[in-house]
Write a protein that binds this DNA or RNA. Structure first.
Length: 277
DNA sequence: CCGACAACCTGTGAGC
DNA sequence: TGCTCACAGGTTGTCG
């Protein structure tokens, strides 16, 4: 469900609720996430103060100072089906509600993740030192990701450009929806070998990735199936997709039928007329 | 290094 | 209604 804009929307919704507050207790109901939720996490978090809620790619980082022990970060990833939202302390947990953070204000941050592809981890010290985060490429919305950087990264790569921009080692947080949408906006065929995308088109693509992610964040993310923000409100960027989920429908720019194919076991949607190699 | 594929797990919708 | 199958926002790991 969540790509970078949905994770950022969640972060913005939760930050004012958790920053500079303490965790009263943490509740783990199911440790079987993509990786096991660490034993002892509840004890570590009880009484910890949350200094900041930040994001790296699609990872949410609760930077904590525990009551005892050294500072560290609670790392949460929402996987495919996770969502993190605020509930009232009286709200009974449901089937797939695997984790709660009870804040001293009495508010509860609840993780629901039916598929359990998500993660709940603890990293001592700087969260960015965690192996899953350390090897990540730049944030797409900051200045260290730009056309020249993308051009450099794509030179040695023969893989399709769509697979390359979805590779978190190249740039963090570009998932299937926004990869499709940014390639449409940039007018690039998703199958183009990365090394054959020109300097000018790399610049355009980097810009379109920033633009589409920014617009999606401003729209509160995309609500597919049951995604809602931390406040329970649905995002509405899904109404502004040009190609994702529109196979067979007319291109909004030229009217040609949008096509769908598979790349890396993921659906790729594109306009055969507006997007070229 | 690359691509193809499987794996993790559950829910949903389409087709029969 | 109910069964089976394909597929879904992500990521890692293996194999040839």
């Amino acid at each position: 469900m969540p790509e970078l804009p949905e994770v950022e929307t969640t972060r913005r919704g939760l930050a004012p609720v958790v920053e500079n507050r303490s965790i009263q207790r943490a509740v783990v109901r199911h440790r079987g996430m993509r990786l096991p939720v660490p034993q002892g996490l509840e004890q570590r978090l009880a009484g910890a103060r949350i200094e900041a809620l930040t994001r790296r790619g699609k990872y949410l980082l609760f930077n904590c100072v525990p009551a005892q022990g050294k500072p560290g970060a609670l790392i949460v990833h929402l996987g495919m089906s996770g969502r993190l939202w605020l509930v009232d302390s009286a709200t009974a947990p449901q089937k797939h509600d695997h984790f709660d953070l009870v804040i001293d204000s009495g508010r509860v941050i609840r993780l629901r993740d039916p598929r359990r592809f998500g993660l709940v981890l603890w990293q001592p010290g700087d969260a960015l030192a965690h192996p899953l985060l350390a090897a990540m490429g730049p944030e797409p919305l900051t200045a260290d990701f730009d056309g020249p950087m993308l051009y450099r990264e794509t030179r040695p790569r023969s893989a399709a450009i769509k697979l390359v921009i979805m590779d978190s080692h190249v740039v963090a947080g570009v998932g299937n929806i926004y990869a499709n949408e940014s390639l449409f906006r940039a007018g690039i065929d998703p199958r183009t070998p990365a090394r054959r995308v020109s300097q000018a088109r790399c610049a355009r693509l980097a810009q379109e990735i920033k633009t589409v992610l920014g617009e999606a964040i401003d729209a509160g993310g995309s609500s597919l199936r049951d995604y809602v923000g931390s406040d329970g409100m649905a995002g509405h960027f899904q109404n502004r997709f040009f190609v994702y989920g529109r196979a067979g429908e007319p291109c909004m720019r030229c009217g040609t039928a949008i096509r769908e194919l598979r790349q890396g076991q993921r659906a790729t949607c594109y306009c055969p007329r507006c997007q070229n190699r």
